[in-house]
Computed example of a mutant assay.
Amino acid sequence: MGALRVAATACVAAGLALAWTPARAQSVPQSMPVGALACGGCHPAVSGGLVPPLAGMPADGVTEAMLAFRSGARPATVMDRIAKGFSEDEIRALAAWFAREKPP
């Protein structure tokens, strides 16, 4: 397994672990769709890395990317597997929520 794939897998695992901690759950906005908290495990709050921040991204672009990951039309290390875990309605809800978020 390549180093990037190992790093990405670890990033997803860390994000999922953070998503379920009790202290973290108390600070989650009620408007946040299911699954959005785990995205922060890899997607940073600010630009500068290999993985783009999601806050403020256009909803159509996020939806299109997630659907392409889910179908296999867009190559990925882990996003293809992550996207398969969401229905189209859930993807659209995540995309809309991130589009409304203001980047720091």
Score class of each variant (00 low, 15 high):
90 E>G: 08
29 P>D: 04
74 R>T: 02
39 C>A: 01
73 A>P: 03
45 A>K: 11
97 W>R: 00
8 A>P: 13
71 S>T: 11
11 C>T: 09
94 L>W: 01
77 T>S: 06
70 R>S: 04
78 V>C: 08
27 S>A: 08
90 E>A: 07
103 P>F: 02
58 P>L: 12
97 W>E: 02
69 F>G: 06
42 C>V: 07
18 L>D: 12
52 P>Q: 05
82 I>M: 03
76 A>M: 03
19 A>K: 00
72 G>P: 05
18 L>H: 13
68 A>Y: 14
84 K>G: 06
99 A>P: 13
3 A>Y: 15
55 A>C: 08
26 Q>D: 09
1 M>I: 11
4 L>N: 14
40 G>W: 02
87 S>F: 05
53 P>G: 09
20 W>I: 11
47 S>R: 15
104 P>D: 11
30 Q>Y: 05
68 A>C: 12
50 L>Y: 10
34 V>D: 10
77 T>Y: 05
12 V>N: 07
29 P>I: 01
12 V>Q: 05
11 C>H: 08
89 D>A: 12
92 R>F: 06
96 A>W: 04
14 A>S: 14
65 A>Y: 09
24 R>V: 10
22 P>N: 06
91 I>R: 02
77 T>A: 07
57 M>N: 13
6 V>C: 15
25 A>N: 13
10 A>N: 09
72 G>I: 07
99 A>S: 15
95 A>M: 08
9 T>M: 06
83 A>G: 00
